[in-house]
Write a protein that binds this DNA or RNA. Sequence first.
DNA 1: TTATATCCATGATCTAGATCAATTTGTGTG
DNA 2: CACACAAATTGATCTAGATCATGGATATAA
Lengths: 248, 248
Amino acid sequence: MAQSNNVTPLFNDLAKIEHDHVACQDCSLYRLCLPLGLHNNDLNKLDEIITRSQGYKRGQSLFSEENSFKSLYVVRSGSFKTTISTSNGREQVTGFYFPGEFIGLDAIHHESYQSTAKALESSSVCELPYDSLQDIGKEMPQLQVQLLTRLSKELAGDKSLMLLLGKKTSKEKLATYLLSLSKRFHDRGFSATDFQLSMSRGDIANHLGLAVETVSRIFSRFQEEGLITLDGKAISLQDMDRLKALCG
Amino acid sequence: MAQSNNVTPLFNDLAKIEHDHVACQDCSLYRLCLPLGLHNNDLNKLDEIITRSQGYKRGQSLFSEENSFKSLYVVRSGSFKTTISTSNGREQVTGFYFPGEFIGLDAIHHESYQSTAKALESSSVCELPYDSLQDIGKEMPQLQVQLLTRLSKELAGDKSLMLLLGKKTSKEKLATYLLSLSKRFHDRGFSATDFQLSMSRGDIANHLGLAVETVSRIFSRFQEEGLITLDGKAISLQDMDRLKALCG
DNA sequence: TTATATCCATGATCTAGATCAATTTGTGTG
DNA sequence: CACACAAATTGATCTAGATCATGGATATAA
């Protein structure tokens, strides 16, 4: 795959490769995305209800907490973060989302978005109006199964994150996080060891329940120990085995 | 509702009220459970695939991490906890489950259970073999929608728990936890202020990312401040408003 | 009933990571 | 390109909550 040669890939490269209105069957994300297992007619029907968005700039919101729920979104290019807040304004980054991943699944039940989703870089999404999705889902059990499976995957990820937040030390948190990113980049055809951190140190810290300063210090420590090299947002994992051992 | 008069309800009281093989349409959990919105034939089909378990004793496992995934479970009476572990044996309580709530939703994607589920008291469940559920789901879109909605609800709950674990102080954690229990008891027709904690202090502490000692101390502090009264496992919320204000 | 184990409460001490403070580096904008 | 502002690093200090230690209360079993 061409992208593998690119040492510092950004997910929005994908946006340039794809044309704006590429159909699901021609999309490079096909095998990571919802349509997996759908064929011909079904795929066409799905295509019809999807709106492919114009781009979102860094910091722009896809939706905000309390907005009424209308659509699920799949990241097409770039990346997003979701956050929720306490009543007195403290914020928690609940997730980062990369191409092929769903945003808004936790809104289905409450019928309003439970979080705010913001682009971390220039990004685009596919919008799936939930009503339409249900309509066509009635005659496409496979689509429902896919949705269910996606939800289940996110749920499992969140449980792991609970373990991380509740029981891991700061070093273990960082190591776990880096390896999780690594896996997701690899799944998308990019290098598992060399990639760009599209989120700020602050976002990482917040997501892992740490202070920014702690993240900075541990990144420095990891570099001293030869585990990673870091140049601004570009990171390179130098010793995956020792990183794995550090996850706890 | 009769239960409301009982000042110290235990969810396994429900088990005594219900007969062992009560059908979904006659089950007191109906409106909290999966069948909501299903009728007649559909309900009967669902009934047919459900296995109603014999009881589980305190500490007994429903399934363990890594077991291959076969069924979803709905708590019929009593309560359960789920836990996941780091490779070096540290454990995190990822959730508590009360009557009408689903256990095992995070296993669908991985096709193996991602956690261990243990009974906290004498309990029983309805077992829903996932394959059968998918079979009948093909002709019952409403069933799929229900499942999806359930998953979404748990997802939203887990996101809130991330906020709790990542950003709240120990007092805020406890207050939030007590009010969450209160709501769930209330939804089940029990008192919102007086109930039994079926889980140990250790389980609570673990779930909230605290030490047992901290939980003990804060319970004592809350009593001194007239927020709650506590007698062993029996708790009474004396000042819901101040508790709410304490959630952060 | 007593034995034995587990759970719970409370005090004393310690520490991982937060907070505060000062620099440096990076970045968008006129 | 230089200004202004946000992000990141590094060091010094502080503190919320963990850990350690002890004694009392509860539960389970023979």
